[in-house]
Write a protein that binds this DNA or RNA. Structure first.
Lengths: 134, 134
DNA sequence: TATTGTTATACTCTATAACTATA
DNA sequence: TATAGTTATAGAGTATAACAATA
């Protein structure tokens, strides 16, 4: 069973997700929260719906996520127009997003270091071919 | 964000898992059920605890899975010793496992076909390096 | 003591449906 | 009509704790 690419893909993703989730947890973040903070850091004023589309999170599931980040004092919301809110990081949110970025970078570097050099440069393009929307 | 291997890994695994889940659903199977049926097909007499270890499913979560497969009439249980049960496929279970195998094979072939030829042979060893227990 | 199977429970992620307000 | 945000809800997957019976 281990020789099946699809199976190996799920196992590797599970293992790597568990690893970065554990790293994010050390600073009190879940993976979704860390991803959202980093996305807002790079795109101030982005809306919840736009984040959902970028990260593949349904609108209905964004609501409690955004509310939680706001309750922690990490993001602020300001009306863009009558129906959408622009999101931005607060001062502590900027710090939190920086922690998330540092952890993400460490994780990505660690991940790549575990792939034998002969295969390393092939991993990303292969994975991108699989998640390409047809 | 798309250029991060860890992120691409999660996205690819999510996309491929959704695809095979949809394929399995056409024959009334969930991914976990299909995996268990295929594992029993290749290892008659295996126990629930052994399956759990092989597939990364906790013992406590195996119980309702096995009960469901038995309720469908796909597997039978026979005492191996006083505390463990050997699992085997019934006649309809053999048919169901064969359907699962066919779907799995089709999915794996389709998956590989989507990876550019230059990267194809590198995917499996790269993924295996990531899920290797250290 | 360790393992098997079990029950109960809970958390996360994901999904759909329905609603209001606005573009 | 389509979009944004919200609420309620449900199904999976996964996790721990505890227990009885057995190895």
């Amino acid at each position: 069973m281990r020789y099946l690419p699809g199976y190996a893909l799920r196992r590797a993703a599970t293992a790597m997700s568990a690893e970065i989730a554990e790293r994010f947890a050390t600073v009190g973040l879940r993976m979704s929260e860390a991803s959202i903070l980093m996305l807002i850091a790079a795109n101030a004023g982005i809306s919840a719906a736009q984040i959902g589309r970028a990260l593949g999170i349904k609108r209905a599931n964004m609501t409690p996520l955004i509310a939680g980040l706001e309750a922690q004092g990490w993001i602020s919301r300001e009306a863009r127009d009558g129906r959408s809110m622009g999101l931005a990081l607060t001062k502590t949110g900027i710090h939190k997003a920086a922690e998330a970025s540092r952890i993400s970078d460490e994780h990505e570097a660690n991940l790549l270091s575990r792939v034998p050099a002969a295969h390393r440069d092939h991993l990303l393009p292969a994975l991108q071919a699989l998640s390409a929307t047809e």
